[in-house]
Design a protein around this nucleic acid. Structure first.
Lengths: 109, 109
DNA sequence: TTGCTATGTGAGTATATACTCATATAGTAA
DNA sequence: TTACTATATGAGTATATACTCACATAGCAA
């Protein structure tokens, strides 16, 4: 059985995973891969309301995935832990595997 | 701006991330790290209803994180892509970074 | 000061997710 | 056949999340 120490750890890990688990947030992470950006430019790039983007950004800050700083009127966001990007290389492998399995299935049918 | 090809990719990636983003599912992944298991043993290990665990497992199968096979009455689940575990090593680094930042903050106060 | 811009947040709604209980299905064994 | 076990799923409820619109706040410039 699980002890309470592990339960706490799993909750924290889930929070980080949740911070990534949304198409818009993944689009934002991909945009920030090339460098820090303000909310307005992020919103324009992903094609969504600033208020909505602002909320998604704060989810990622809370999850520890992004950090921010003020610069005049603007708030600049950037990746806090570059290894987040490694996650996407694993995700690519999962997708490749799925594609291979689908191909195999198609050949059977 | 994003093109529709990217939007589709981000949605697929988000599905995979969502498949991981739950404390119970992370507990299950940690349990399966050491080898395949049936639903009943997984449910006992994580301390939750079998019906609930069964649903969480199907979320992870749909996300491509797990695969399953029947063996008599039992259904055996196992990790499909071991690199999923790398994600948790990145998550550990995020948590370490958070801990360091908190420490820094405490020293200021 | 006033006016403008960038960001954040409250309120409301819509949708998605998690959980429980009851039931259905599939396989085993007598 | 019947009885039992493991798993999956429908229905209902509770909670969480996403989104939009309106408004508040903070900083810049005139």
């Amino acid at each position: 059985m699980l002890d309470s120490r592990n339960v706490l750890l799993f909750e924290k890990q889930a929070q980080i995973a949740k911070a990534i688990a949304h198409p818009l947030r993944i689009a934002i992470l991909n945009f920030l891969k090339d460098g820090e950006q303000c909310v307005c430019d992020i919103a324009e790039h992903v094609g969504s309301e600033r208020s909505n983007v602002s909320r998604h950004l704060s989810v990622m800050v809370a999850g520890g995935v992004l950090k921010s700083r003020k610069e005049g009127l603007k708030v600049i966001y950037e990746l806090r832990t570059p290894c987040i990007l490694e996650f996407f290389s694993c995700v690519s492998r999962v997708l490749e595997q799925q594609a291979r399995d689908n191909e195999k299935l198609l050949r059977i049918l």
